[in-house]
Amino acid sequence: MDWIDFATPKTISEAVELLASKGDRARLIAGGTDLLVQLRGGRRSVDLVVDAKQIPELNEMSYSPQNGLVIGAAVPCYLIYADNAIAEAYPGLIDAASLIGGIQIQGRASLGGNLCNAAPSGDSIPPIIALGGVAHIAGSNGSRQVAAEDFCTGPGRNVLQDGEMLVSINIPVPVAHSGASYLRFIPRNEMDIAVVGVGTSVVLDESGQNFVSARISLASVAPIPVFAKEAGDSLAGKPVSEATIQEASEKAIAAATPISDMRGTIRQRNHLVGVLTRRTLNIAVERARGG
């Protein structure tokens, strides 16, 4: 690995200053599970690594039924799924947090890092999008908010400008009769990259028989995680049925633009989008019904 400098700022402003001083030659590190591999493999090169773990805001994790969930960008996955209140309120997010890497990786990797890494296959991104997550960004020109679905701009690229950093991901309060789910397809049973991943969230009416709204997001079927808005919208106001779910699955397939590579073919991936959309919607519905 090439030489790097390492800095441990204690505040956001200190971190922003450090990042701004080096432009694209600086990178924030939370778990480091992606960045160190990229640096070692020569796929990324930086001069300065800025540690996110000493900055209080980046380590915040709070949930309240009033304000929803705030997950600091450096909070490792295991802390999220170890929190019973969060696990109960956001099972769709837990689906993803508990399958990123193995237990060792989950001891370090953060959802913020997963989002910033902006891999098309990033497992936590579809559920964050499906749950209406928002990225809170700090930078030399102040802070801003970006919807999760707008955060990734290309493979390994995101909206962060030089000198900007992700502070936290905020996820709204789950409304009554809502449920979410994330599933990915991999050839092994863990420790793998999604051939396809699908995150869905649904809101049902009081009877639990009709969709009020739904959001669907897909991984590994485009250069960035896909927000399949039309697929989710197609369910709004419709009854929960095989036919409506099938229709949404087909719309999800339409939103996918996969390529063929060593992990899967276009045909296989489109097919899996359909299968996983159906499966995740069924799980989300079940969870929304309190199952």
Binding site: P187, R188, N189, E190, M191, D192, I193, M262, R263
Partner: peptide, 26 residues
């Protein structure tokens, strides 16, 4: 699951334990 993937130039594209999928405990 195990296999060497080669691209059109004869370069192996899955030379890691992540993409060369040996069985895990699960």
């Amino acid at each position: 699951n195990e296999e060497y993937f080669f691209n059109g130039q004869g370069q192996m594209t899955n030379s890691s334990f992540l993409d060369y999928r040996m069985p895990i405990s699960l």
